[in-house]
């Protein structure tokens, strides 16, 4: 499948990733425009996390083409400050405070006015009150908010979010919805991997289904009813030909 979601910010053409003898991604093709949100859904082991790792530059693709911001990424791993990944873990140090962790990343990314920026993002995720607490004392939801703050810190053009709602309470989920809406309004884009149809319908402009490493179906969310998406996720994607 090589259907265009339009736009030049990210483009994958028959992208493949093999780990050992196992093909985790098989000829995945799509592209994304600036200021849009794409949701990747699929059962466990479908390759969602692997796809995000390849798109982030953490893992090199085994085949196909990957273009980010008009530049082709070769078969090497590559980091780019315009792309940030939120994984299953926070990528933070448990023995440092939330402020110290974010300041460390701000320096690592060479941000100007680093302290000011750290305070801004901590306020944005409503974690300023716990800025001097060690990460190891945080609840799961607070760690997720701190991880979100790290992702927002660099003011990246493309956010890659692997199940970002995990661990968040009701207020946290609303906060994330708001942040993702702001991202799109300011011309930034995101790709999120999720199992939750409600989350996807709320924040994404398009949704794609990954099964066995293949992108088997996709649709714009404004042309989709929630029950259709539920049927697709149950495996009836052939009947919902988007």
């Amino acid at each position: 499948m090589a259907k265009e979601i339009t736009g030049p910010i990210l483009r994958a053409l028959t992208l493949c990733k093999t780990i050992g003898a196992h093909a985790v991604l098989r000829e995945v093709s799509f592209s994304m425009e600036r200021g849009s949100g794409l949701a990747i859904m699929g059962p466990n082991g479908a390759g969602k996390s692997t796809l995000l790792k390849v798109l982030s530059g953490l893992w090199a693709p085994s085949g196909g083409e990957l273009w980010r911001f008009g530049r082709r990424i070769g078969d090497e791993t590559s980091s780019d400050q315009r792309v940030v990944l939120l994984g299953h873990h926070s990528f933070l140090y448990p023995s440092l405070t939330a402020f110290e962790n974010l300041l460390f990343y701000a320096h690592l990314w060479g941000l100007r006015k680093a302290r000011q920026r750290v305070v801004e993002v901590l306020r944005q995720v409503d974690l300023l009150w716990a800025q001097n607490d060690l990460l190891q004392t945080f609840s799961r939801g607070m760690v997720q908010r701190a991880a979100l703050a790290r992702v927002l810190l660099a003011d990246a053009q493309l956010l890659l979010l692997d199940e970002p709602y995990t661990g968040l309470d009701g207020a946290g989920r609303q906060l994330l919805d708001r942040i993702l809406g702001d991202q799109k309004r300011t011309g930034r884009s995101f790709i999120l991997a999720s199992h939750d149809e409600d989350d996807v319908m709320r924040v994404a402009d398009a949704v794609a289904l990954l099964v066995g490493g293949r992108m088997v179906w996709w649709s714009y969310t404004d042309k989709l009813r929630p029950e259709q998406l539920q049927r697709v996720c149950r495996g009836d994607y052939d009947k919902e030909g988007a």
């Binding site: 982030s56 530059g57 953490l58 791993t77 980091s79 780019d80 400050q81 940030v84 990944l85 994984g87 299953h88 873990h89 926070s90 990528f91 933070l92 140090y93 448990p94 023995s95 990343y105 690592l108 990314w109 060479g110 990460l135 760690v143 790290r150």
Partner: peptide, 19 residues
């Protein structure tokens, strides 16, 4: 050891600059 629990190593790898 410090990088294992929350996979901070991945964050370091994805930071700009030479790994």
């Amino acid at each position: 050891a410090n990088e294992v629990r929350e996979e901070a190593l991945t964050g370091l790898i994805l930071a700009p600059g030479d790994k």
